[in-house]
Design a protein around this nucleic acid. Sequence first.
DNA 1: CACAACTAAATTGTGCACAACTAAATGTCG
DNA 2: CGACATTTAGTTGTGCACAATTTAGTTGTG
Lengths: 152, 152
Amino acid sequence: MTEPEWLRLDRQICFSLHAASRAFNGVYRPLLADLGLTYPQYLVMLVLWEEGDLPVKKLGERLRLDSGTLSPLVKRLEAAGLVRRERSAEDERSVLVRLTGEGAALRERAFEVPRRIMSATGFDPAEIGELRERLDRLTAALDAAARTEATR
Amino acid sequence: MTEPEWLRLDRQICFSLHAASRAFNGVYRPLLADLGLTYPQYLVMLVLWEEGDLPVKKLGERLRLDSGTLSPLVKRLEAAGLVRRERSAEDERSVLVRLTGEGAALRERAFEVPRRIMSATGFDPAEIGELRERLDRLTAALDAAARTEATR
DNA sequence: CACAACTAAATTGTGCACAACTAAATGTCG
DNA sequence: CGACATTTAGTTGTGCACAATTTAGTTGTG
């Protein structure tokens, strides 16, 4: 394979992922707008609905996001009345993100979102699961590579 | 399947894609920093290297990006001396993005990037091609769904 | 020709991602 | 106990994504 062809292949794979991510976002956006959420805000709410109140630190681990992204995002959720932020009593460095009644109630309205997304993809659940497995494997490999790169 | 399980599945697939996209970015970032490029800037350069000088409009079609994103990005490439922007003579609404000698020369230094990315993924070219095919199909389905949504 | 409809870029404003840094609380070890 | 490292959030600055709007140039139609 000649070098320009490598660049061509590179364009294809990195672009495909980039484009798929943004296309996904484009389908979620109007659905989530009805709930008053952005896509990353929805991810935070999904984690809170599933796992209950969490400190910012734990949220960041689940979502692979740092405080520079989460701090302002959670503040916007608080401004929208969906969560409250409380300094932990045991460890005052930690800020606990708690669902409000309104935030918990929003879950009911979110039930239809996954169904509509699923139908938009045209994929059946098995195919989605397979794709997910592959993406997670890719992410793990890339993260490992980034870490060894960093420690070299 | 109960409703909370749907939300759980939703968290998995949309999060997987989101995370993979950012993980990819994380591996490219340090490699591209050596070239003085960000990841989206690299995508623009790949298109220009492959297809030659293009108007902003065409770049946007290739990359699925609008002028709101491309205008400042291309200006930064111009500030870095990699491209020049020229009003088209035939159609003065159009701005042609042209590689400078420096921009064209950067291609040689970019050759190693795809190889290092490929090894970071731990995937072989066939597997990458398969993933890419699936992602492109997903993107096409999502775009189509977004369009029918919009025209309803 | 006049003028409305359209098109290409650029601009504005909001929000996300992330690196680098700061501040405050906590942990550790001599 | 007390200096020092570590941990958790938050802040700042840069760049990308995208909706909405603006500006300038082009095209089509009466």
